[in-house]
């Protein structure tokens, strides 16, 4: 018998606190798989955000830091600048990265900090109970956009990969999803590349992962994946937005 699938070593043997069907768990596992396959657990420092993944420091076997809301890229900068040969990643949600931490994100990218950012876009604030996120879609109902997000009143969503790909310091940006095994495989490759780029000192790599929040979207996990396909993917197209390796 050959083991074709099991828990990666870099993922701690503790249960996740996430709701049933929340795709955070899939992405955590993909990050840990990348750390395993590159053999970098002992050299890696992860930065957890504020939001649903605030406890991410409990879920990875590498050294971890819990940052203030939105500040993970600044914390990562401090870690990386003092340890240029270590591997540093942040794991951030949409509120953390694209609202309160927009400045830290944009400037870490434009400085070309040689770090890896894993960005979870599920178009809602999960931890606080379903409020509007910077990536909430037009018309999407949340507890703070109860009549649906009206761009005239509540502004427009931010397309993070598109925005960041205009900046020179960015090495790699890809938007992936984790709604099907095929897409999970694609996400896995993207995350691995984002870490490999760092080892090869190429600059900042970001992988945006379209994710679900069944609880706050008010759907079953399966329906949430379908809602993501039907509503998020047209607004946030999957694909590679920047790759310094591309010819």
């Amino acid at each position: 018998m050959a083991v074709v699938f099991d828990k990666p070593h870099a993922l701690s043997p503790v249960p996740f606190h996430y709701c049933p069907g929340c795709t955070h768990g899939i992405v955590h596992r993909l990050v840990a798989e990348a750390i395993d396959s590159l053999g970098i657990e002992g050299d890696t420092i992860g930065i957890a955000p504020v939001g649903c993944s605030v406890f991410a420091y409990n879920y990875f076997e590498c050294d971890m830091i819990e940052a203030a809301h939105g500040r993970a890229p600044a914390v990562a900068t401090g870690v990386k600048r003092t340890n240029p040969d270590k591997i540093v990643f942040t794991y951030q949600g949409d509120g953390d990265l694209a609202a309160i931490g927009t400045a830290e994100t944009v400037h870490a990218v434009t400085r070309g900090e040689n770090i890896t950012i894993i960005f979870i876009n599920n178009a809602i604030y999960g931890m606080t109970g379903g409020q509007m996120a910077p990536t909430t879609l037009p018309g999407q109902v949340t507890t703070t956009s109860p009549y649906g997000r009206n761009p005239i009143v509540q502004g427009n969503p931010i397309r993070v990969c598109e925005m960041l790909s205009t900046l020179d310091g960015l090495a790699f940006a890809q938007r992936v999803a984790v709604d099907t095994p095929a897409h999970v495989n694609q996400a896995k490759k993207a995350i691995e590349k984002a870490f490999k780029n760092q080892i090869e000192k190429k600059g900042l790599s970001i992988v945006e992962v379209l994710s679900t929040c069944p609880t706050n979207w008010g759907m079953t996990p399966g329906d949430a994946l379908q809602w993501m396909r039907d509503n998020m993917m047209p607004y946030y197209p999957l694909g590679v937005y920047k790759d310094v390796d591309a010819k």
Partner: peptide, 8 residues
């Protein structure tokens, strides 16, 4: 926060 990261 960069100081926080460095101090860590």
């Amino acid at each position: 926060n960069m100081v926080l990261g460095a101090a860590s």
